[in-house]
Design a protein around this nucleic acid. Structure first.
Lengths: 104, 104
DNA sequence: AACATATATGAGCATATGTTCATATAATAA
DNA sequence: TTATTATATGAACATATGCTCATATATGTT
């Protein structure tokens, strides 16, 4: 029989990268606010900026970040882009964390 | 009757702070590796450094970070400090994320 | 075409972050 | 006490991050 040392199974590089990227997306207050708002309703860029008192440019930059990670998606209506959530799993993580922050 | 506008309920500052801090802790590969290892077994500082091929100083700095957020705790045995997980909820978030990273 | 509106993008800047090196501290042993 | 081992800490550095400003692009309108 082989040794019963039960060596530790390291996380592989790819998993580590994906996981850290995901949490990084959720680690910034501005992105959390944007995701939380989009969790309530679909919004265009200027609506987000106004509702959250952010510069249009700030919102646009963060939306690009979130879109690259496929956490949000958008549909076009003329010159207006409506953004919405594209990753329910990440929203679940966010909502769990919010729930715990409030009840701990 | 009042308007049925259903205004958006903003996240309060404190929740936002706690949530972003929590995810920030999980957003760094080194901290993820340390937490994941401690999720398997209690370890002292040098064990962590050796198992993960990190400098003792790096491990110690990150453990302080995690301890400040009360994600880990330690017990003393002579000059040796054994660290272990102190926040099962955050470990749940981590494990969920790892699971999804592997299956998506 | 010219113009208006909505959004995206690049550069610059200030701040935050993570690692390393050198050294300090703490507990124990001789 | 001195030496040894384990861990913590501060400073310095390089890189990453997030915001703002100015401007570009894209669509629609006249």
């Amino acid at each position: 029989m082989s040794d019963q040392q039960n060596k530790y199974e390291h996380l592989d590089e790819e998993t580590l990268f994906i996981v850290s990227q995901t949490f990084k997306a959720l680690s910034d207050p501005t992105r959390i606010r944007i995701l939380h708002l989009l969790g309530e309703r679909e919004c265009n860029v200027s609506e987000i900026a106004e509702e959250l008192s952010l510069m249009q440019s700030t919102v646009s930059h963060q939306l690009r970040f979130l879109k690259n990670l496929r956490l949000v998606k958008f549909r076009r209506a003329g010159t207006t882009l409506f953004y919405s959530i594209d990753d329910e799993h990440v929203m679940t993580l966010l909502h769990q964390s919010i729930h715990h922050a409030r009840h701990d």
